[in-house]
Simulated scan of single mutants.
Amino acid sequence: MTNSTLNIVGEFTGEWTNKDGLIKHFEGLNKNILNVWLMEMSESQNFHQYVVNPTHKLVWINVEGFLLFLKWKASERGY
């Protein structure tokens, strides 16, 4: 599964993808930094709902939530 749209009521709606899908979508993003950022998102009160880990190998990321995280991360660095 690369990209899909889920039709679930609540916060789990919109476009979801796996790590490979995000790496293809964001030029220059590599798996190492993505893993660090996903861990940061998972541990964040504001962004944990955008990362779903049903197993230790399987992860889905909400694309819109990931963009919000990137914007927040940039603002924290003064960009």
Rank of each mutant, 00 (worst) to 15 (best):
T55F: 00
V51M: 06
K57G: 04
K57R: 13
G14S: 08
G78M: 05
H25P: 00
L29F: 06
L58F: 04
M39Q: 12
Q49V: 10
H48D: 08
N46F: 08
H25V: 00
Y50H: 14
S44F: 02
S44E: 09
R77A: 14
T5W: 05
N7W: 03
N18S: 14
T5A: 03
E76Y: 03
M39V: 07
N30A: 04
Y79R: 09
Q45V: 11
G14I: 07
V63D: 05
S42N: 07
F26G: 03
A74N: 10
N62A: 02
E76K: 13
Y79T: 00
E11P: 08
L29M: 13
K57L: 08
I61A: 10
E11N: 14
G78K: 08
G10V: 02
K24I: 01
G14Q: 12
N53Y: 06
L58K: 15
W37F: 12
H48L: 02
V52H: 11
N53K: 15
Y79I: 07
T55H: 02
N32K: 12
H25F: 07
L70H: 03
N3L: 11
V9F: 12
W16I: 04
L38Y: 09
D20V: 09
F47Y: 13
V51H: 02
L34A: 08
E40D: 15
P54Q: 05
H25N: 10
M41P: 06
L29V: 02
L68P: 01
T55D: 04
M1Q: 09
Q49A: 00
N18M: 08
I33F: 00
V51A: 03
K57Q: 10
K24C: 04
L34K: 12
L70C: 14
Y79G: 08
W72P: 01
L68Q: 12
M39H: 08
L22K: 07
R77T: 04
W60H: 12
